[in-house]
Design a protein around this nucleic acid. Structure first.
Lengths: 218, 218
DNA sequence: ATGAGATTAGGACAATCGTCCGAGAGGCGT
DNA sequence: ACGCCTCTCGGACGATTGTCCTAATCTCAT
């Protein structure tokens, strides 16, 4: 009966250690010590380390989906919801400065290892991508919703990576503020500029206007 | 006399393998096989694996600096130079889709390993950051030059990461085109909008206008 | 209390890691 | 031909890795 609890704890600690130290560098010994069990006990719950990784990715999927659903419920407007997304950079500021983006770093590592789970890790990105695309679609950006989603996702990812590399919290906060300002401006110009049906014509040029403003560091 | 040649080959292959498989995952056996020497021969040229890493980072510093100097010499305008920077994403498209950004992935990994060389890896980012800041400074963005440099750097980094995760070459090309369009627009609005001496006042709002256009996939 | 099944501890296993040693091949001035 | 220095090879070393087995412990219905 306590087996399921132990299993959950293994997944939880593995999730944390995979994030902090990386999948390959986090050993069974580390996880066992964190959970408080013996190394040999793993085999009862998981046959291989890859199975733990699968469970960790599943866990992250659930948590991400719950987070997205929460934003969907709370946020009254699409802009407000996307702003919630951007603000995870600030909400998880400490962790991101220390260990980077949990999804990006895992995805990058698994690709280097040529691991079979690399697609499943990239699937975590897809959750955000599709959710963001839905928000932009609701804002009136028909065929460009996915492109906008990828743009925001990519920029957030890069901000996390550089904030991590430079341990620069001021940079992270400034970029979030700029991103939110860009979002504000986008929500104003979007419905008037382009109907939702555009996007097929390749020669159509559209303009996104972007506010950038220096953040007052409080 | 052939010793220096072997040493260079070790650094070259280590550089490649650290990029393709990651620092920790690339073993002495792998590098030895790639160079065509025995594993025991390493100790003559490098005392530890970390020494090889140092040499690899030094090598990358030199190559990056040479690349930046080349752009500085060829590019006639600052905008043209920054465009050269953005276009490395396309020039190295195949490698980036497979293995991500060489600097970003190394920096991320070394942070996870809590490796002593993590700052030296981040120093590679600084080369680009300072170079970009000088270009933006020359364009007239006085105190905001560094912020703009970080913005471009972060976005490129995020694009590389996502293009790698999704193996999406179309996305990479589209983002590069958008980035270049944004740059074009920036070079037009910059000198007129803000004098180079601004930046101290926190309540000054400035606008960056950004062209976004769907890329015609050739 | 007892047996059955679930859960755990501890250690053995082969493989691989970075490291390091000792023998010897190679070139070159003498 | 000799000896010296540079360079390389092959293997051994201890440590650590993921994996796996077996015995012991725990839980609980009967």
């Amino acid at each position: 009966m306590g087996g399921a609890i132990t299993r959950d704890q293994i997944i939880e600690q593995a999730d944390r250690l995979f994030y902090e130290r990386g999948f390959e560098h986090a050993s069974f010994t580390d996880i066992a010590a964190a959970v408080g069990i013996s190394r040999g006990n793993f085999y009862y719950h998981f046959k291989t380390k890859d199975e733990i990784l699968d469970a960790v990715i599943d866990r992250r999927r659930v948590k991400v989906q719950a987070m997205l659903d929460g934003w969907e419920a709370e946020g009254r407007t699409p802009v407000e919801r996307v702003r919630r997304f951007v603000h995870i950079l600030i909400a998880n500021q400490t962790a991101i400065l220390r260990h980077g983006c949990p999804i990006g770093t895992l995805s990058t590592e698994l690709i280097k290892l040529n691991h079979t789970a690399q697609d499943r890790a990239a699937g975590l990105f897809t959750l955000f991508r599709d959710w963001l695309a839905r928000q932009f679609h609701a804002m009136g950006w028909g065929a460009d919703a996915d492109a906008l989603a990828m743009w925001v996702l990519a920029h957030s990812q890069g901000v996390a990576t550089l904030a991590n590399a430079f341990r620069d919290d001021a940079f992270l906060q400034r970029e979030v503020a700029d991103l939110c300002a860009w979002l504000e401006r986008l929500s104003v110009t979007s419905p008037s500029t382009t109907p939702a049906t555009v996007g097929a014509a390749a020669d159509v040029r559209r303009e996104f206007e972007v506010f950038r403003q220096p953040v007052t560091r409080a």
